[in-house]
């Protein structure tokens, strides 16, 4: 599905979402007539300081207005790898975008990420992984780390890595691996109305607490994280 197809299918009642150099900003109308704030990264654009600041500004300007839940569409490269971006403190810009999304989510503006293309590394952390519910569309191909880079660092062949990837979702790229880890909450169908699936999700949003480690445990992709976090939390509470 192209981005236009996706937005049209999500918002048959209309939208004002514009793409400018890969940065998506706008809003859309839900079936109820209420609005939804829309932002995102398109066309596999790298997320640098300029893009991140426009996205966070869009969310901040919307706070206090009646602009509804927040949708973050993601088809990005990784963070922009450049001297300029690092010189200017890219880590602060990406963190700021994530912080603004998390703050909004905790304060009555539920956030949904929709991963419909690529994403990686810092860009994924600042967008989709900073939302309450991350949804994948079939065909999305997120890659925290790509296999050729991994082959280089681990000094293993691509064949050896692919063989290992069959037995564990923990390192290899792909939507289903991220779903098994608990990072992607659900995968929507692209053969039925996205609007129906969005409305169903909005009607049944999970609470604004991070349950991704539990999800990863239930799905068998991350067996230790939830238990370790809980044990440390309990020990820390006892130490008070």
């Amino acid at each position: 599905m192209t981005l236009d197809d996706i937005i049209t299918s999500l918002f048959p009642d209309g939208h004002e979402v514009r793409s400018d150099k890969g940065v998506l900003l706008g809003s859309a109308t839900l079936r109820s007539g209420d609005s939804m704030l829309v932002l995102g990264v398109a066309d596999r654009t790298a997320l640098g300081v300029d893009e991140a600041l426009r996205l966070s500004g869009h969310v901040l300007r919307s706070i206090g207005r009646d602009s509804g839940p927040i949708l973050v569409l993601v088809d990005s490269d990784s963070q922009r790898m450049s001297k300029r971006d690092e010189l200017l403190g890219l880590n602060e810009f990406l963190a700021h975008l994530a912080k603004v999304l998390i703050h909004a989510d905790m304060n009555g503006r539920p956030t949904i990420g929709l991963l419909y293309g690529h994403s990686a590394a810092g860009a994924l952390l600042a967008t989709g992984l900073a939302t309450r519910v991350l949804v994948g569309l079939p065909g999305a191909d997120p890659a925290v780390m790509d296999l050729p880079s991994m082959a280089k660092v681990t000094k293993l062949s691509m064949e050896a890595l692919e063989e290992k990837a069959k037995s564990t979702p923990v390192f290899a790229p792909g939507l289903s691996n991220l779903a098994q880890m608990g990072a992607v909450h659900m995968i929507w169908s692209n053969t039925t109305s996205l609007a129906d699936q969005l409305e169903a999700l909005l009607a049944d949003m999970p609470a604004a607490r991070d349950g991704r480690d539990t999800l990863g445990k239930v799905r068998g992709g991350r067996l230790k994280a939830a238990e370790i976090a809980e044990r440390v939390r309990d020990l820390a509470l006892q130490a008070r």
């Binding site: 998390i102 992984l129 923990v170």
Partner: peptide, 21 residues
């Protein structure tokens, strides 16, 4: 992120960011 467990490490970082906030 630790490369050999890249997906788990990336997600751990996302969880930590949320927990810090």
């Amino acid at each position: 992120v630790r490369l050999q467990e890249a997906n788990a490490g990336e997600l751990a970082i996302a969880e930590i960011m949320r927990a810090v906030m």
